[in-house]
Design a binder for these strands. Structure first.
Length: 829
RNA sequence: GCGGCGGUGGUGGAAUGGUAGACACGGCGGCCUCAAAAGCCGCUGUCCUUCGGGACGUGUGGGUUCGAAUCCCACCCGCCGUACCA
C-alpha cells in the first residue's frame, strides 16, 4: 500500500469551493424569529489594493478569521466582511508613469486580493464586498460630506498648509512625518492656500474623554491623547500701547504656567504672526525684522523644527504691558514660537521654561525666579532647576501672591486676571482641523459647485454621485487634474441654473475609509448609506484588527466621523470600534523590515503553494505573541506543516467508521490519558483564544495533544478518535481546511456547524498529581499524591520523600506551607 | 524631554506569586532503508559529578515573601510613538 501523505493542494480547494458554492459565511441582517443569537462584528482593516497581498495581510486576515470562526462556533451571528480602500496616490502615480488608468490597475489588484483571500480560506461574507472607488460607494462618501457641510463641520478656509512638492498636493498634519510627506518622503513646504477642512477640533474633548470607554491597547490610546494634546492653563492678555498710543492692541497668550506670570521678562511673536511687520513699519528695526521673518518662512519645517537648534530672534523695539505688575516688557520675533499653536505669541519666563531660558541667555535678558522650593528667596536659576521639583513649591517675587503655594497661586492669579478682564482659564489643543482636500485625480470628488451669483452651492443629494470624469492627463500641476476636464467642470448652479464650476479637488482617501465599516452593515442599500435600524443590529465593530501604523490617522478620523454622524441622529453609537487589536509586523528572516531592496521579502503565494494555506496561516499565528513583531523563518513553516501532517495522518489512519468520535464512556489506562489530554486541550485553547488572544500557545496545546496521541498507539480507537477529532475541531479556527477535512473523516460532519467543545470537568482532574516537595523554597523531590488530599497528608508525603529527607537532616522545621494539589514547602532552620 | 512597550537557552518563544525554559526551530544519537527522502523514537540551559545527585541560572543592584522571570524601589540597555506645543 502506498503511504498516504497530507496533501493541502487537494484538500484546500475542495473546501474553498464548497464554502463558495454554499455561501457558508454569508450572514443575514435579519436576526431571525427568536433573534436570540448575540451578534459579533469582527473586522480587519480593509486593504489598500496594490499588487498582491503580502505576509502582513496574511497575518491580519488569518488572525481575524480565527476570531470570526471562534465566535461563530460559540453561537454568535458573526459579520465578517471585506472591501478595498481603492482610491489613492500609488495607483495614480503608476498611471502617470504607465498611462494605464488607475481604475484598471486598481481593479486588477482587487482581483488578485480577492483571489488570495479565497485561496487562504478566509471566511468572508462576500455579499457585502465593496470598493471605495465604486460610484455606488463614493456616492455616500459625498453624501456624508454634504451632511458635515450642513452642520458647519466641513468648511473652506485659507491657511498655511503643508504642501508636498513631489505629489503636488496638500497634506493633513497627520500625514506629515518629521517634516516629510508620509507617502513619498519629500520635505513638505508651507503654502498659503484655501482648502477644505473637517472641524475635528470641535470633537477634541470627546475624542479624548471617550478613550476611557473603549477596550484599546494602552499605547494606541496614549498616542491619540498625545496627538490631541490637551493642555490646561490660562489665556493672558498683554497690551501694546507704544506702537500706536491712540489704538492699543491686545496680544493674548496661552500659558500652562499662569503662576509664573511675575517672571515674564520678554514677549515673543511667531514670524508668521500677522502683526509683526505692522509693529515695526517705519522704525529702525524694520529691515532686520523683515530679513529675519523672510528667512524663517523659507526655512524647511525640518530645519526649523529641530529642538536642539540655538535660539534666534530679533527685537521689535516695542513693549507690551504685563497685566499683573504693569511692567513694560520688550517684544521680539523668534522662530521657536509657532503660529499654529496657541495664539502665535508667547510670554517669556526664562526662570521656569527651558526654551525661554535659552532665549534669554542668548539675548542677555533678565531671569527672574518666581517659584521656589519652600519659597526660598535665592533659588537656583541654572538650567538644572527645570527638572528639580519638590512637593512644596511656593511663589516668590510675585507681589501680593508671594508665599502662596504654586497650585493655589495659579488659581489666585487666574481669578485676579479674570476680575481685571485681562485673562481667564483656558484649554488648548494640539489637534488641528482635518485638511481633506487634495489636488489629485484618483479620489472622491468633493460635491460642491461655485456659482457666480450664489457662491458655494452644495450638489443636491439627488444629483449624487458626482462621478469622477475620465481624463487623459493625470499629471498634477499644482491644481487638481480634474480642472482640465472642462466638460465636467463647467456645470450649472443647482440653485439658479446659471453657469457654474465644480470643485476640482478630491477628498483625502482617509475620508473614504472613515466610514466603510458602516456601509458593510447595509452594503447593498441604494436609497441610503445605511438603514439606521440595520446599522443598530451590527454596530459597533466588536473586534477591530489592524496595524499600529493607523493608531492616529484612520482610527481618529473614524471616531470623529461616527461622533459627528451620531450628533446628526444618523446612528446610535459614539465609538466605532469597541475593541482594537494591533498586530505586530512580520519582519524578514534577517530581522529587518521586509523590503525588495533588502531582498528579504517573503511572498505568501510561494509559501501557500509549497505548504498550503493552513500551514501558512498557522505559522503566522504560531510565530509568537500576535501583537509582537517577529522575524520570518522558513524552518518554522516547515515545523507547522509537519504538525498538520501528523494530525492528518492520525485522522487518515482512524477514518473508516464515522460517527463515533465522541468522548468514550469509561476510559481506562492509555485511553483515559488521551481523554484527559483532549479535555485539557479544550480548556487551554478556549481560554487562550477567548481570554487573551494567545494563539501561539493555543496552537502549541493542540500540538501537545497530537504528540500525546502518537505516544499512545495502543490506546483503543474510540479514545484515539475522540482525541484526534478534538484536535481537528480545535485547530479549525487556525487551519480551517485541515480541521474540516480531519473532522469529516472521523465523524462525517462539518466541523463549523458543530458547537465549540466544552471541557468535561470530570476529565480535567486526575486521581493523583505530582506533589512538588520543597525545602526552603527549593525543589527537592516530586512524588505522586492523591488529588484533593488534606494538607497533613501532603506534608507527611513531603517529609517522607527521599529528596526532602536528605535536606532535613539536623534541621528544625519551623514552618510548613501547603498549596493544595500543588506543593509543600518546608521551612527549616 | 514626554508617553508606551520590552530585556528568559544556540533561535522564536512558554510560565498572570508556587516544578523556569511548554511548544517549535536548530543540533546530537538511534530506528526504518541497498541508499536517500519522508517518517518514527530518544537526548538537548550552563558548570560540576563518585552518575545518586549537586551548584548556578530570567539585563544590573537592592527589597517584600515560606517561595519572585512575575510584586516594589533604584539603575542599565533596547524598541516604538511624539516633540521648540508655551
Amino acid at each position: 500500500m502506498a503511504e498516504q501523505r497530507y496533501d493541502p493542494t487537494s484538500i484546500e480547494p475542495k473546501w474553498q469551493q464548497l464554502w463558495e458554492r454554499e455561501h457558508t459565511w454569508q450572514v443575514s441582517n435579519d436576526p431571525g424569529a427568536d433573534g436570540a443569537e448575540p451578534k459579533s462584528y469582527v473586522l480587519e482593516m480593509l486593504p489598500y489594493p496594490s499588487g498582491e497581498p503580502h505576509v502582513g495581510h496574511l497575518k491580519n486576515y488569518a488572525l481575524g478569521d480565527a476570531i470570526a470562526h471562534f465566535h461563530r462556533r460559540r453561537g454568535e451571528r458573526v459579520l465578517h466582511p471585506m472591501g478595498y480602500d481603492a482610491f489613492g496616490l500609488p495607483a495614480e502615480n503608476n498611471a502617470i508613469k504607465t498611462g494605464v488608468h488607475p481604475r484598471v490597475a486598481t481593479d486588477r489588484s482587487i482581483a488578485a486580493y480577492r483571489h488570495w483571500f479565497h485561496r487562504w480560506g478566509i471566511s468572508i461574507d462576500w455579499s457585502r464586498e465593496l470598493g471605495t472607488h465604486e460610484p455606488s460607494y463614493y456616492r455616500w462618501t459625498q453624501w456624508i460630506f454634504l451632511r458635515l457641510y450642513e452642520r458647519g463641520l466641513a468648511y473652506r478656509k485659507e491657511a498655511a498648509v503643508k504642501w508636498c512638492p513631489f505629489d503636488q498636493t496638500v497634506l493633513a498634519n497627520e500625514q506629515v512625518i518629521d517634516g516629510r510627506c508620509e507617502r513619498c518622503g519629500h520635505e513638505v513646504e508651507l503654502r498659503q492656500l484655501e482648502q477644505w477642512f473637517f472641524r475635528i477640533t470641535d470633537y477634541a474633548d470627546r475624542l479624548l474623554d471617550d478613550l476611557d470607554a473603549i477596550d484599546w491597547p494602552e499605547n494606541v490610546k496614549a498616542m491619540q491623547r498625545n496627538w490631541i494634546g490637551r493642555s490646561e492653563g490660562a489665556e493672558v492678555t498683554f497690551r501694546c500701547q507704544d506702537a500706536d498710543p491712540a489704538h492699543p492692541v491686545d496680544y493674548p497668550v496661552f500659558t500652562t504656567r499662569p503662576d509664573t506670570l511675575f517672571g515674564v521678562t520678554f514677549f515673543v511673536l511667531a514670524p508668521e504672526h500677522p502683526d509683526v511687520l505692522k509693529l515695526v513699519a517705519g522704525t529702525e528695526h524694520e529691515a532686520a525684522v523683515h530679513e529675519y521673518v523672510n528667512r524663517a518662512l523659507t526655512e524647511s519645517a525640518e530645519t526649523r523644527g529641530a529642538a536642539d537648534k540655538p535660539k534666534t530672534g530679533v527685537p521689535l523695539g516695542r513693549t507690551v504691558i504685563n497685566p499683573v505688575n504693569g511692567e513694560q516688557t520688550p517684544m521680539f520675533v523668534a522662530d521657536y514660537v509657532l503660529m499654529e499653536y496657541g495664539t502665535g505669541a508667547v510670554m517669556g519666563v526664562p526662570a521656569h521654561d527651558q526654551r525661554d531660558y535659552e532665549f534669554a541667555t542668548a539675548f542677555g535678558l533678565p531671569i527672574r525666579p518666581v517659584v521656589a522650593p519652600g519659597g526660598a528667596e535665592d533659588p537656583d536659576v541654572s538650567a538644572a532647576a527645570f527638572t528639580a521639583h519638590t512637593d512644596d513649591e511656593r511663589l516668590i517675587n510675585s507681589g501680593a501672591f508671594s508665599g502662596m503655594d504654586a497650585v493655589a497661586g495659579r488659581e489666585a492669579i487666574v481669578g485676579w486676571l479674570q476680575e481685571q478682564g485681562a485673562g481667564h482659564s483656558s484649554v488648548n489643543f494640539r489637534l488641528r482641523d482635518w485638511l481633506i482636500s487634495r489636488q489629485r485625480y484618483w479620489g472622491c470628488p468633493i460635491p460642491m459647485i461655485y456659482c457666480d451669483t450664489h457662491g458655494l452651492v452644495p450638489v443636491p443629494d439627488a444629483d449624487l454621485p458626482v462621478r469622477l470624469p475620465e481624463i487623459e492627463d493625470y499629471q498634477p500641476r499644482g491644481r487638481s487634474p480634474l480642472a482640465a476636464a472642462e466638460d465636467w467642470v463647467n456645470t450649472t448652479c443647482p440653485r439658479c441654473g446659471g453657469p457654474a464650476r465644480r470643485e476640482t479637488d478630491t477628498m483625502d482617501t482617509f475620508v473614504d475609509s472613515s466610514w466603510y465599516y458602516l456601509r458593510y452593515c447595509d452594503a447593498r442599500n441604494d436609497t441610503a448609506p445605511w438603514d439606521r435600524e440595520v446599522l443598530g443590529r451590527w454596530m459597533p465593530v466588536d473586534t477591530y484588527i489592524g496595524g499600529i501604523e493607523h493608531a492616529i490617522l484612520h482610527l481618529m478620523y473614524s471616531r470623529f466621523v461616527v461622533k459627528a454622524l451620531a450628533d446628526m441622529d444618523l446612528l446610535d453609537v459614539q465609538e466605532p470600534f469597541r475593541q482594537l487589536f494591533t498586530q505586530g509586523m512580520i519582519l524578514g528572516a534577517d530581522g529587518n523590515k521586509m523590503s525588495s531592496s533588502k531582498g528579504n521579502v517573503v511572498a505568501p503565494s510561494e509559501i501557500v503553494e509549497r505548504f498550503g494555506a493552513d500551514a501558512a496561516r498557522c505559522y503566522v499565528m504560531f510565530m509568537g505573541p500576535l501583537e509582537q513583531d517577529a522575524a520570518w523563518a522558513d524552518t518554522g513553516v516547515e515545523g507547522v506543516y509537519r504538525f498538520l501532517s501528523r494530525l492528518w495522518r492520525l485522522g487518515e489512519g482512524l477514518a473508516g467508521a464515522p460517527g463515533e468520535a465522541g468522548q468514550p464512556a469509561a476510559p481506562e489506562g492509555d485511553a483515559l490519558t488521551l481523554v484527559r489530554k483532549a479535555n485539557w486541550t479544550i480548556d487551554k485553547v478556549t481560554a487562550d483564544v477567548a481570554g487573551r488572544w494567545s494563539f501561539n500557545t493555543a496552537i502549541a496545546a493542540v500540538m501537545e495533544l497530537v504528540n500525546e496521541v502518537y505516544r499512545h498507539p495502543e490506546a483503543d480507537d474510540g479514545a484515539r478518535r475522540f482525541a484526534v477529532a478534538t484536535a481537528a475541531s480545535l485547530v479549525f479556527p487556525f487551519a480551517p481546511h485541515l480541521g474540516s477535512e480531519v473532522y469529516e473523516m472521523l465523524t462525517g460532519r462539518r466541523v463549523w456547524t458543530e458547537p465549540w467543545p466544552d471541557a468535561d470537568p470530570a476529565m480535567l482532574v486526575a486521581e493523583t498529581f505530582e506533589l512538588v516537595c520543597q525545602v526552603n523554597g527549593r525543589v527537592r523531590d516530586r512524588v505522586d499524591a492523591p488529588s484533593g488530599a488534606p494538607g497533613e497528608e501532603l506534608e507527611a508525603l513531603c517529609r517522607a520523600s527521599t529528596g526532602v529527607r536528605a535536606h532535613l537532616d539536623g534541621h528544625e522545621v519551623v514552618k510548613v506551607v501547603v498549596v493544595p494539589d500543588k506543593l509543600v514547602n518546608l521551612v527549616v532552620r
